[in-house]
């Protein structure tokens, strides 16, 4: 709300209305941003630093946030950017995922090697429900970072392909191929784990 007989609020800080609206709209997403940060950084300390930087930056840029759009998505965008900048500072060029040309999202959806391997003993993938949460999170953490980001935003945080495309600054088609490849790798890891733990009797390859 703007009052017309006064100067508009300054562009940064300095205004308690500004702060209150930030606290009302952005702060409730702190847990989600924290979870995202935790997946990106892999450590609690790293995640806390990243969340802190994200919220400070978001607060300073609050005027650029368009009310009514998804605030969570906006915060994830900032979080990712801060993370990439931090990482750049820390290392040179880390593993940049090689996109096998335009990896075909359709074929990634169509083919399901893990399903094929387990369908005789567990046709509907009930073994996924037996895997403890920590193990699932650990498997997500092992994914290459670009796949991990897509999987976290989609499957843990429930964002749409379009929202993820904006956050990651990539076309929707690339979101799909990264997401589907990430899912496939994750399934492979969880399947191995389920076999190790005896939730599943050996794989097709054992027979």
């Amino acid at each position: 709300m703007t009052s017309e007989n006064e100067d508009p609020p300054p562009a940064t800080g300095g205004d308690s209305v500004h702060r209150v609206s930030f606290i009302d709209e952005a702060i409730p997403h702190m847990d989600a941003v924290y979870r995202f940060a935790l997946r990106l950084t892999g450590t609690q300390d790293g995640a806390e630093d990243l969340v802190q930087d994200t919220f400070f930056r978001a607060f300073r840029a609050w005027d650029q946030y368009t009310p009514g759009t998804r605030c969570k998505s906006w915060l994830f965008t900032i979080c990712r950017n801060v993370f990439l900048r931090q990482r750049e500072r820390r290392q040179r060029h880390d593993e940049i995922v090689q996109e096998t040309a335009k990896e075909d999202a359709a074929s990634l959806s169509r083919e399901a090697p893990v399903f094929a391997a387990s369908k005789d003993s567990d046709p509907e993938g009930d073994f996924f429900n037996s895997i403890v949460d920590e193990e699932i999170i650990a498997a997500i953490d092992e994914l290459p970072s670009e796949y991990k980001m897509a999987v976290v935003l989609s499957d843990l945080e429930g964002l749409s392909y379009n929202e993820i495309a904006e956050i990651m600054e990539i076309p929707v088609g690339t979101v799909k191929s990264r997401l589907f490849r990430g899912r496939r790798q994750l399934q492979k890891r969880l399947h191995e784990y389920a076999v190790e733990m005896g939730y599943l009797s050996g794989t097709a390859g054992d027979r």
Binding site: D31, Y34, L38, V51, A112, F115, E124, D133, D155, E157
Partner: peptide, 22 residues
Amino acid sequence: PRFQFERHFLDALQAAEERGTA
């Protein structure tokens, strides 16, 4: 079965994340 398989997989992912809090 393939659909159920993927659904169980995605459900497991979603359930795993629910608790992390700042």
